[in-house]
Design a protein around this nucleic acid. Sequence first.
DNA 1: TTAGTATATGAGCAAATACGTATATACTTG
DNA 2: CAAGTATATACGTATTTGCTCATATACTAA
Lengths: 112, 112
Amino acid sequence: MSRHVPLNDQALEIVARRFAVLAEPMRLRLIQALFAGERNVTELVETTGGTQANISRHLQTLIAAHVLARRKDGLQVFYRISDPTIPKLCELVCGSLEKSLTKQAAHLSASR
Amino acid sequence: MSRHVPLNDQALEIVARRFAVLAEPMRLRLIQALFAGERNVTELVETTGGTQANISRHLQTLIAAHVLARRKDGLQVFYRISDPTIPKLCELVCGSLEKSLTKQAAHLSASR
DNA sequence: TTAGTATATGAGCAAATACGTATATACTTG
DNA sequence: CAAGTATATACGTATTTGCTCATATACTAA
């Protein structure tokens, strides 16, 4: 994006949509839970503390965005991260978050 | 996020907010315009084709998120990208976008 | 087939947000 | 000071979206 031809309207919408999918705390919690490996819905409901309906909906959103993939086994459906850029994206944002937090901490202690 | 302790609720909200800021096509257009260097509001209005009011609002959003920084010079206000992770984030997403597009193209030509 | 379990989805509501119009603020110049 | 220009903001509206409750679907086992 920085050193390429400017994106057209349709491409911008797609990129925006991609960020929007990651812009919900509950979805980030799901992604976080899946960093350890695939999990079924019941497990995800327990780890995240959400309702079954809500978790299922968020999972569908993540599937539609190709962030996750699913595997059915009998009654259960197992979800996993399918987009390799997701961990990188999260690391990038978390890294800068940590930096700004330590900066804030430095400012706070300096202002005492 | 992947190899660290799971983020607490507050941290997840911050990360989600960060992604949300990037989840609007018009804001991405502004960021894109600023990759070339700092620009004042009038220039950004012209390049993006938005209304002045709307561009100004989006700029405030980006400032509040510390994505951009501003410099006042007389009547004009110049904006620039202040967060070094932004170009990386955009590149990452655009890269994976290109990949999935070429995949789609391959599937299309294969299915003929 | 019936009962039971795991997951997905429809309907409705509440909150967030993007946008346009109009107006306010900040600054410069005559 | 008055007029003009650049930027910011208040207000109203329409759309999107996240959530809950209830129910549907898919599968298994007795």
